[in-house]
Design a protein around this nucleic acid. Structure first.
Lengths: 341, 341
DNA sequence: TTGAAAGCGCTACCAA
DNA sequence: TTGGTAGCGCTTTCAA
């Protein structure tokens, strides 16, 4: 193989009869150099296609210009959207991102973090797993002076910035919308109550009912464990078999809503006429179901970008960051599944 | 901020009255060291949580243990699946992956490649954009002795390994399945004919018709440009408005099939009774449409893993790789949309 | 079995 | 305005 060795600073210095330091300064735009020298060096570098060895630069500066990013699942519309946002923000600032998945398992999250720390990332972006109850593996970053920015799913066991979605508000808006449409018996397919986002959505749901003087019925809230389509289908079956059926269902996620939709359609219920349906997350698929699914957009791209920007800002000022939370507003996306005729 | 400086090799050497080289050897399991020394060093390292500085190691070894990966879109089920596969394979071998997106634009693909090369990746995994007709930006990697492995969407303008999907075979199987189900007038919503994968699927479609003595009608083939749901909807409208309508549609992608499905349902056609429907790619959503959508699974995870493994193998033997193609079989996934009663 | 020392490519400090 | 030089943390060759 060719392996044409790249030309180095020294080579240029030797060729031009300058010292490496002068060449370095010329290339990095330091003042106090004669125009002539700068021009000469730049021309030579250009001509010989000099590219600085990034590893050497990083070594010298004791950084990598790489951010670590850990998400529960990469093959997931919302998370891949956050990744995309983080990636673009990073690119703009000359950073890059090393990815890892935790599969929502603490064990794998710890491994991923150790791996990233071992690779020498400058800082960490993380959406923690549902299992994360302690954060030694995150503290390890802080101990080395590397900031950690959490987003979406966060834990309080570690200090630093957090970028969160306003789940409460999103749920509140969604349910209020259903109420305004005329639905009166609104059920909720929720997530695990020990997961903050799920709990917040539940609270938003409950508050919206209360604020509009509607009944909150314990039996109309079903806890999904896996947040799966199957659960959506199963619990919806339970709901429509009840003595007093709901006339709308607010689902913790679009996938669950899809399960609910398939269940209802298979049983001959019409949506949105007989039952209204709302999802959450605004997955791509919600646009294409029939009827199309109303949902709550979480602005994943902006969230990823914001998280990355926060991290890079901390890196710039060489700090670990305050213990503050940035909350991103959600957006109600009204489609057909919730439009009561 | 704390910035607790990590302990270094030198520190250990000094503390134990050894030379750095001995400590290095002890830690890296070289022979020719006394049990006693090895034990002593390892114990000390353990106790003081010594972690080698990865940047220094990389610098010394002139590598980063990082692979670059470029895909058209990160927020895309198939590609995020390939990424996931590549990531796992990389992790197993102590490598990591730096991601970039080309947005299917040559301009951005070039930028991404330059960026990755600049970051000092050891090699590149790429699925090229639809616009890629030349490959100077890929050749740049080879020129530096860094192997490039292409997957899914490939170009012949550069040599090296390619991992491809057997699009022809997948399409052939899909259409044959429709024929065996009893459909006789099979239309095809294709992609751009200058994109290899699309063309191969078209050829597979055509061959299947021929082999089973069915008519190939030019009018029944519609070229989608964006491969969008809208196009699926629009072209399907055209198809069912024709004098002689098809009784089944084989779509270039699940998204297009979804458009077709929505169109057919909105016009009151029943699937699979009146018209059969087949997608391609086996997106997550195909499982959840109603009726569920038959499709062709491309094993994205395996593809990404295979590409990464090939690249790492080349890195190991220090070569750029032969100009060979590895073709991955597809899998027919039969669901309800193609089961003629 | 161990040590000494060079050096990877670059930056930055101190001197001139 | 420029040069000399030390040194980042580690590996590896040569020597003892």
């Amino acid at each position: 193989m060719s392996d044409k060795r790249r030309i180095t600073l020294k080579d240029i210095a030797k060729a031009l009869n300058l010292s490496p330091s002068t060449v370095s300064r010329a290339l990095n735009g330091y003042p106090s150099l004669s125009e002539e020298t700068i021009h000469m060096v730049k021309e030579y570098a250009e001509k010989h296609q000099y590219v600085p060895n990034p590893i050497a630069v990083n070594f010298r500066k004791n950084r990598t210009s790489i951010l670590g990013m850990v998400v529960p699942h990469l093959v997931h519309h919302f998370f891949s959207t956050t990744i995309s946002g983080a990636l673009e923000a990073a690119k703009k600032n000359g950073y890059n991102i090393l990815m890892a998945q935790s599969y929502d398992l603490l064990k794998d999250e710890i491994l991923a973090c150790q791996h990233l720390l071992g690779m020498g990332v400058d800082g960490l972006l993380i959406s923690v797993s549902n299992e994360t109850r302690e954060a030694d593996h995150l503290q390890a970053f802080l101990d080395e002076g590397k900031p950690v920015v959490q987003f979406d799913k966060v834990t309080d066991h570690i200090s630093g910035p957090k970028i969160e979605v306003d789940d409460f508000q999103g749920a509140y808006q969604a349910v209020t919308h259903l109420i305004r449409q005329g639905y009166r018996k609104i059920a909720h397919l929720s997530g695990r109550m020990n997961v903050k986002n799920s709990h917040e959505r539940f609270l938003g749901y409950k508050k919206a009912l209360e604020d509009h003087g509607l009944e909150f019925k314990e039996e109309w809230v079903k806890n999904c464990f896996d947040i799966s389509e199957e659960e959506g289908f199963g619990f919806t079956t339970e709901l429509v078999n009840m003595e007093e059926k709901p006339d709308a269902i607010f689902c913790i996620t679009d996938l669950v809503a899809l399960g609910a939709m398939n269940c209802l359609k298979s049983k001959g219920y019409t949506i949105p006429d007989q039952l209204g349906l709302m999802g959450f997350s605004n997955w791509m698929l919600s646009e294409y179901t029939s009827p199309s699914l109303s949902s709550v957009n979480q602005f994943g791209y902006q969230m990823g970008a914001k998280a990355a920007e926060s991290l890079m800002e901390l890196l710039k000022i060489h700090e670990l960051g305050e213990n503050q939370t940035h909350i991103l507003k959600t957006e109600l996306v009204v489609r057909h599944s919730s439009l009561k005729p």
